[in-house]
């Protein structure tokens, strides 16, 4: 591949760039090998979000922020976002375009790959070779890695959440900001969000960036078996995550699910209680730095793969832990 930069679609929240987007920027910087990294943000940005965003991009060594604004970009539309990202591929002559492996990141990269007439690699965890570009990406829900060759003129890929830490660049930058109006057609705006219904809080975003996650599985016993687990979660300032069986039985909402068809987590500590540790669940929690399993079965995969474990019934152990925490806090 000839030397050229790398473009990254950056998703924002109230605190600037999302954690997984900053991970994608770190991946992009390593892939770029000294060539410039171009960030792309689509749609209106609140002033305080932009204030938070620019230093984050600078920390990641981003050369330029391409900010796409146009009528109709106020609501999310994957096709319109892809049109903007593809415009940046041309404007900045990048040789790779990537995003975080979020629902939006994967959706927009798929559209971008179609527009560029190239392949797309979803959920990449590492670049194994640069010329030709060979990446490792998660398949089978993260339990198998695929080595995939990307030899199109522009490589399009998404970076799996928590495959790497968002490390700061050796020399931070002051990104140049350039606003542009992407080339949009009417068709790009047909499949757009017409409204957002804010109901029960959706924990899936919080799970992905939580530093403490308390997990609950079949061992909770019933929909009424979560009281002590919720207390422990609150005492630790964490987020509750559950196994697939818990959501399938209707004990807890689907957005709390950790695993292949739920959220991927990477907390400092994960405390799975009454979770046997099926491969699908492990795919969602294997990036946890420390795992403390509570389970009746000392041979359960979650116990043998954990760093620490307590053997016994969660309904006896978790209340005792809660009491001990309260006692020490006085």
């Amino acid at each position: 591949m000839t030397a050229a930069g790398v473009g990254v679609l950056v998703e924002t929240d109230g605190h600037g760039a999302t954690l997984v987007s900053r991970e994608a920027l770190t991946f992009a910087r390593e892939l770029a090998g000294g060539q410039p990294v171009h960030a792309v943000v689509v749609g209106p940005l609140d002033a305080d979000v932009e204030d938070a965003l620019l230093p984050q991009l600078g920390e990641q060594g981003v050369a330029m922020l391409h900010h796409a604004t146009a009528d109709g970009l106020g609501a999310y539309s994957a096709a319109a976002w892809a049109a903007a990202a593809v415009d940046v591929v041309t404007r900045a002559s990048v040789r790779a375009l990537l995003a975080a492996g979020t629902p939006r990141g994967n959706e927009v990269m798929a559209h971008a790959a179609v527009r560029l007439g190239v392949a797309m690699a979803a959920n990449v965890v590492a670049a194994d070779g640069v010329d030709p570009l060979v990446v490792s990406r998660q398949v089978v829900g993260g339990t198998v890695l695929e080595e995939m060759r990307l030899d199109d003129a522009v490589a399009v890929l998404s970076v799996a959440g928590h495959a790497l830490d968002p490390a700061p660049a050796a020399s931070p930058t002051e990104p140049e900001v350039t606003a542009f109006t992407p080339t949009l057609s009417e068709a790009d705006l047909v499949a757009r969000v017409v409204r957002t219904e804010v109901g029960a809080p959706d924990e899936s975003a919080a799970l992905g960036s939580a530093r403490v996650v308390v997990g609950a599985g079949r061992g909770a016993g019933s929909a009424d078996g979560f009281k002590d687990l919720v207390s422990l979660t609150e005492l630790l300032g964490g987020v509750l995550g559950v196994s697939r069986v818990v959501t399938s039985l209707g004990w807890r909402p689907h957005h709390e699910q950790v695993g292949q068809t739920g959220s991927r987590i990477a907390p400092d500590i994960y405390i799975p209680c009454g979770i046997s540790g099926a491969i699908q669940h492990w795919a969602g929690c294997s990036s946890a730095k420390t795992i403390l399993a509570i389970n009746t079965d000392p041979e359960a995969p979650m116990v043998t793969r954990a760093h620490y474990a307590v053997i016994g019934d969660l309904h006896e152990i978790v209340p005792a832990i809660n009491d001990e925490i309260r006692r020490r806090r006085g």
Binding site: Y308, V310, I311, E316, I317, A320
Partner: peptide, 11 residues
């Protein structure tokens, strides 16, 4: 894995 204990006594 390091087993911290068995039952509520492990709290």
């Amino acid at each position: 894995v390091e087993i911290l204990g068995t039952g509520p006594e492990a709290a």
